[in-house]
Amino acid sequence: MQYPNVHLATFIDRPNRFIAHCQLVDTGEVVTTHVKNTGRTTILQPGVTTALVHNDNPNRKTQYDLVAAKKYDRQWINIDSQAPNKIVKTGLESNYVKLPGIQAVAEVNPETTYRDSRLDFAGSDNLARPFFVEVKGVTLINEGIAAFPDAPTTRGLKHVQTLEKAIDDGYLAYLLFVIQTKGIKKVTIDRDIFNELAVEIEKAQKKGVHVIAYDCQVEPGTLELDQPVPFDLSQLFVSDGLPSSIGK
Rank of each mutant, 00 (worst) to 15 (best):
S234T: 14
A147T: 04
H54E: 15
R40C: 02
S81H: 10
N85Q: 15
Y96H: 14
V25A: 14
N5T: 06
M1R: 09
V31P: 04
Y72N: 15
I212K: 01
V53I: 13
H7Y: 15
P100C: 05
Y114D: 05
I167W: 07
P46D: 01
G170C: 05
D116G: 00
N59S: 13
K136H: 09
I246P: 09
L233C: 03
P84N: 05
L157P: 08
G247E: 04
V229L: 10
Q217N: 12
G123I: 07
I102V: 15
E219I: 00
G28S: 07
N37S: 07
T222A: 11
F231L: 09
K61E: 13
K70E: 12
I212M: 00
L225W: 09
K36Y: 00
N16I: 01
F148M: 06
G47K: 06
E164S: 14
N95A: 08
L119E: 09
R118S: 04
F148G: 00
K165G: 01
P84G: 03
L8C: 02
I167E: 05
R40A: 14
V238H: 06
A146D: 04
R155T: 05
R40G: 01
G101H: 05
V135T: 09
I77E: 10
N85M: 14
P243V: 03
R17D: 05
P230A: 06
P100Q: 07
T41N: 13
V209I: 12
N85K: 15
R40E: 15
N109L: 14
P243Q: 02
T181L: 10
L24R: 12
T153P: 02
S81N: 09
V25I: 14
D190H: 11
E196R: 09
E143L: 08
K206Y: 00
S124P: 00
K206H: 02
D80M: 06
S239Q: 12
F11A: 04
L119P: 07
R155M: 02
L176H: 04
E111S: 13
I246M: 11
L176T: 02
H210K: 11
V211I: 13
T50Q: 05
